[in-house]
């Protein structure tokens, strides 16, 4: 959407023109969804978050400064909607045996880009507390202090959640044998060997094998 057209659509949206609202929604749907999907467990949840974000866009459009890029403003609103989702909806008491599992170094990570579908699937598998902190810190570039304030947690919790998120992602890469094209070789992987129904703890085993 060109700048002039965007200006016209925004003006129409300010007058609650439903057709133009749909046009704006449609034009930025993919961009908004690509942000929200990282914070959600699945696309259904992502759509809910995204719509909450667009609702904020439509109801706060009068606050938008046309001198600044619209996408940056929209993106910030989508991140805020994702943070709201975290704060108001899910606080899962999640326990695992990460502390007991061996640390996997970054040396085992592939050197080349991984497929988007694999990466997003791994991020979505993270518990929500870990996923939110990982997104805010690693992807959006927030500091631990900013994350702590946004999520109403301590900086220590933010750091701990980031550490656990990274560990889990490393294990998932190793466990699933995800690799970049042409990098087949020596791999290490983690397998889930037991899930306790009583303590709800997941036990991992670190295996080494050669493909």
């Amino acid at each position: 959407m060109g700048e002039a057209e965007l200006k016209r659509v925004i003006e129409a949206c300010l007058k609650q023109d439903r057709k133009q609202q749909k046009m704006l929604y449609k034009a930025y749907y993919g961009f908004a969804m690509s942000i929200c999907i990282r914070y959600a467990g699945n696309r259904y949840e992502a759509a809910e978050i995204m719509n909450q974000g667009f609702l904020k866009v439509f109801t706060n459009l009068h606050k938008y400064d046309p001198q600044r890029p619209f996408m940056a403003w929209l993106g910030r609103i989508m991140i805020n909607a994702s943070v709201d989702y975290y704060r108001s909806n899910l606080k899962i008491a999640y326990q695992d045996d990460l502390e007991k599992a061996e640390h996997i170094s970054d040396d085992n990570l592939p050197d080349q880009k991984l497929l988007y579908e694999d990466l997003i699937a791994m991020v979505q598998k993270l518990p929500q507390a870990y996923r939110t902190v990982f997104n805010l810190y690693a992807i959006e570039g927030y500091t631990h202090e900013e994350i702590a304030a946004a999520l109403n947690i301590s900086t220590g919790t933010s750091k701990s959640n980031l550490f656990k998120a990274r560990e889990k992602l490393r294990r998932m890469i190793a466990e699933n044998g995800i690799k970049s094209p042409g990098s087949y070789g020596e791999m290490s992987t983690i397998q889930v060997v037991a899930i306790s129904n009583i303590t709800h703890r997941i036990t991992f085993v670190h295996n080494e094998f050669i493909r």
């Binding site: 449609k26 749907y29 993919g30 961009f31 969804m33 690509s34 999907i37 990282r38 970054d106 990570l109 592939p110 880009k113 991984l114 497929l115 988007y116 990466l119 997003i120 991020v123 990982f134 810190y137 690693a138 992807i139 990274r166 992602l169 490393r170």
Partner: peptide, 22 residues
Amino acid sequence: GKNKLDQLFREGLSNAEDKYAY
């Protein structure tokens, strides 16, 4: 950050708007 894992995800997940059809 220069964390290799973060970089892997940051780059891999960027510019994904085309992945989601309306």
